[in-house]
Write a protein that binds this DNA or RNA. Sequence first.
DNA 1: GCAAAAGTGTTACGCTTACACCCATGG
DNA 2: CCATGGGTGTAAGCGTAACACTTTTGC
Lengths: 237, 237
Amino acid sequence: MVKDWYKGGDKVYVAVDCIIFGFDAGVLKLLVFKRRVAPFEGRWSLIGSFVRPDESSSEASHRVLKEITGLDNIYMKELRVYSEVDRDPGARCISIGQYALIRVDEHDKELVESHGAKWYPLNELPNLVLDHGKMVSDALERLRTNAQFYPIGFELLPQKFTIPQLQQLYEVIFQKQFDSRNFRKKLLSLEILKKLDEKDKSSSKKGAFLFQFDSDKYKQIRKKGFSIPLFKNQDVL
Amino acid sequence: MVKDWYKGGDKVYVAVDCIIFGFDAGVLKLLVFKRRVAPFEGRWSLIGSFVRPDESSSEASHRVLKEITGLDNIYMKELRVYSEVDRDPGARCISIGQYALIRVDEHDKELVESHGAKWYPLNELPNLVLDHGKMVSDALERLRTNAQFYPIGFELLPQKFTIPQLQQLYEVIFQKQFDSRNFRKKLLSLEILKKLDEKDKSSSKKGAFLFQFDSDKYKQIRKKGFSIPLFKNQDVL
DNA sequence: GCAAAAGTGTTACGCTTACACCCATGG
DNA sequence: CCATGGGTGTAAGCGTAACACTTTTGC
């Protein structure tokens, strides 16, 4: 960038804030840490960073995620931009909310602790700085909406999981019980699960078969799919 | 804002760019204008602006929309942030894409012309500056996805419209023909259309009854609705 | 042998889809 | 009177939803 053609225009600080969901011990949790800059230094905050001159917003959010959890290749999507003029008393600063789904079993717990970050169940969250509470509720709403239409639940479970685990996750996300026979039938009928020969015996004597998400098959289905149901009954929310 | 607590951090230019859709003469059109700043001054561009210190990104996009079309209260949603480091050779500048649906019959045509803005059918669009072409294709994809689940088509039609008009719009959006009996049945079964006593005779001798979108009823349905179908068949895209 | 979770099948209903003819009117 | 677009009904098929019992095994 040799020249600034827009000189005289207004510049602002641009940050990313990550709304990081995990599924652990049967509940949805959120990863937060203690803010390291004034104002509000030391208060609970989403994990974020200013966007650097040499990176995009998506690169910035992946960078901080890796820094704190050690994880690469995370499911992360832009939520929205928070740009209210007075949202940050520290300075005019807009923030891009990015929500992430991570596998709690794969992340680096010591790294997380060393940054003073902590997992909180969603219903025990402390108050967060700025508009971060709003970001969390927006992200939760988005998670619910998207989980209705896309198989994103898998991003929150271990690579190998059982059908009852999957059902429990969806029950937590949607705050609703499902019939286990219909749930199993439905999920298997999608043909995006690969059944393994192993069983998980951690939650029952009989043991439950483990499955893997088959993202190749999913991509195939997506490709040819697209039936465009106009409005499909109650999906008109 | 009395003090800058983040001094020493990097600031960037933040702009909004509006992807403005209209439905006219049976085709989807996009409103573009000639860029007024260097570099690329005079080339076709989405309509945008820098975000000012005293406004949010949403306020900025509504401001430029009003400035060019004279319209208030427009359906406008954030698409996503475009923040690739080299997206704008003029300077490091991130842009927030905002897509808008407007009623072509209600906008101020002279105002549009006086700004050098022009409606182009989507398949006759000139090349646009920067990453604006990408913004358009992203917005179109979003429009299609959203139109499957939410009744947003009404935002593109006159307040009063006929069922055949509505069908034509959906056929254009989805590039797909619908059976007129099923289409009518489906839309009426949603119970969000109010039938008027007037007829529109502009496209047939018999004339077609006019309808209005009933947003109150729609809100009611949304409120109690929410049946959460897990994945509803092909809706798993 | 029993407690606790995993796993399985069938039926009724409602929504979706396919399909063809009559109606109203202006010219 | 006829050409043009508007408007209507029905039957078959498919996916959804409701429902209860058997299996496995560690203790």
